[in-house]
């Protein structure tokens, strides 16, 4: 049965004189390489010239602050549950009096760590977050020498008050609407787990 019409029948026919002296083939091969001298080069001179990222590029995470500068994360753990690579760990703490400017909710993440070596940048944490606290950005995780240095703590994840990171590309109205749909799959799972715990 013929599977494809691109198949070639191998023949061991005797080479003609011009094939045997190789010269025509060598000349034509060199003409091919020579023609490439004048082709357009797809090279992007990286540090000066950056390739445009796709708007939905998923790079290093950011923990957002609200407009007053308080951390949005409430340490609910939904992201950690959603994470298929189990890269996220956190410990939660209770907000003290006078810390209202620092943390938006009464419960907050004392530590929040993402292991960038485990993370597969799927974006499920972002999808799971009910507080719009975690986002993936178009920044690339830096190379490093030690494995320990790839566990990013809050110092690297939380955005600086004076240096906000723009996530509007990922926070389109469609996304916001999608996140508000009740009964998202992981939410269901989570509620199931909660209910199990109650009984």
């Amino acid at each position: 049965m013929q599977l494809t019409n691109r198949s070639k029948v191998v023949s061991n026919k005797v080479q003609s004189f011009s094939e045997r002296i190789y010269f025509p083939a060598i000349i034509s091969g060199m003409a091919v390489t020579f023609s490439h001298l004048f082709k357009k080069r797809p090279t992007i001179m990286y540090p000066e010239q950056k390739r445009e990222m796709a708007p939905i590029y998923r790079g290093q995470h950011v923990l957002k602050r609200d407009e007053n500068g308080a951390e949005r994360c409430t340490s609910c753990g939904m992201c950690a549950v959603a994470c298929p690579a189990e890269a996220i760990t956190m410990t939660s703490g209770e907000r003290k009096k006078g810390e209202e400017g620092l943390y938006r909710e009464e419960k907050y993440a004392k530590t929040y760590e993402i292991n960038m070596l485990r993370c597969i940048f799927c974006g499920l944490c972002e999808e799971a977050c009910p507080k719009e606290a975690i986002f993936l950005t178009d920044r690339i995780v830096d190379a490093d020498y030690e494995r320990d240095d790839f566990v990013y703590g809050k110092d690297k994840l939380v955005e600086k008050v004076d240096k906000r990171i723009d996530v509007t590309k990922r926070q389109t109205p469609e996304v916001l609407a999608f996140k508000k749909i009740p009964g998202l799959k992981h939410n269901e799972l989570y509620t199931d787990k909660l209910n199990k715990g109650k009984h």
Partner: peptide, 10 residues
Amino acid sequence: GLLQDRWGPS
């Protein structure tokens, strides 16, 4: 580099 559609050392 030039023959292979690259720039070579730059």
